[in-house]
């Protein structure tokens, strides 16, 4: 007991990791499944071919799926196009969300942390409350707002507004946490030495809060890529994000190409996390 004080918690940790990875392992397994069903009937990489079929020569696709006719092959290419359109929509929205919410959030965090102004208390309350409300409330209230008051046509723009709205509080929280670690007296010292506000922002505040801002950006990116609840309410026609697209597929059983896609997304995630870690370390030096 004393020799290994964390034996129990270590066991629980590894069991939890198994629990967390079990579904991912299942997704991976089925992405290499030769048939479409939940029964594993042999190893095959044909779903990777069909996932990328929009960029692959038709003869090659036909060679991978010898049992299929021309019409079915055309459907595979069509599905591949739809998948990648949804991926593109998702990433475009995620990057735009990350950018806008990071800029608004970083400025807001600086103002809230280091300045005094009349509506500060009010803003502190208002900007954090959405964090403590279920997302579906954001979705429903924005939908009603867009369609009954603004009479906005639902489109990727309304999706973008929705995503920025639920990401902002998170970005704000992350950046403020970073700024709080920082000693305000440096700014006072700079000001006493005659530094201008602009120099203070660019030479002091931004460099020290850069890791926080980057973390906020990545956080917004993640939340946006992941979101289904808000998107499903404020989306327009024919421009699904990846989660909405996947949800529409569940009706008929998710096609194996999506399993293959998720394997790529997992790899992308791992690479992104590692590179961001190194980047933050690099900035930190």
């Amino acid at each position: 007991m004393i020799k290994k004080p964390h034996a129990l918690s270590r066991r629980i940790y590894w069991l939890t990791v198994v629990f967390l990875f079990l579904p991912l392992a299942v997704l991976m397994l089925y992405s290499f499944n030769a048939s479409r069903s939940f029964k594993f009937s042999g190893f095959s990489i044909k779903w990777y071919y069909s996932l990328f079929s929009r960029w692959i020569a038709p003869e090659k696709i036909a060679a991978v799926f010898p049992e299929l006719g021309a019409r079915e092959l055309a459907q595979i290419v069509e599905r591949s196009k739809n998948i990648w359109t949804a991926v593109r929509n998702s990433f475009a929205i995620a990057f735009a969300t990350g950018l806008v919410s990071t800029v608004i959030g970083a400025l807001g965090a600086i103002g809230l942390s280091w300045y005094r102004f009349s509506y500060k208390k009010f803003l502190q309350g208002v900007s954090f409350v959405p964090l403590l409300l279920p997302e579906i409330i954001t979705g429903v209230s924005l939908l009603i707002f867009f369609s009954s008051i603004l009479r906005l046509k639902l489109s990727l723009i309304t999706v973008l507004i929705g995503h920025i709205s639920f990401c902002l509080p998170f970005v704000l929280l992350i950046i403020i946490a970073r700024l709080e670690e920082f000693d305000y007296s440096i700014i006072e010292a700079a000001r006493d030495l005659g530094a201008r506000e602009r120099d203070i922002l660019f030479r002091i505040i931004l460099p020290i809060s850069a890791p926080g801002i980057l973390a906020g950006f990545v956080g917004a990116l993640t939340l946006s890529l992941e979101d289904f609840v808000v998107t499903v309410f404020v989306q327009g026609a024919n421009s699904p994000t990846l989660p909405v697209f996947i949800h529409s597929l569940i009706k008929r059983g998710v096609p194996p190409e999506i399993n293959a896609l998720s394997v790529f997304l997992i790899l992308f995630t791992v690479v992104l996390i590692l590179s961001i870690r190194n980047f933050i370390k690099y900035i930190g030096k």
Binding site: V100, I157, R198
Partner: peptide
Amino acid sequence: IIKETKLKKSVFGLAAALPLLFLTSC
């Protein structure tokens, strides 16, 4: 303050333009 405003304008201009670029490209 004027300089700061200019700065903010350009920052926001950029921030507003980028997502539009993304969206129009889609």
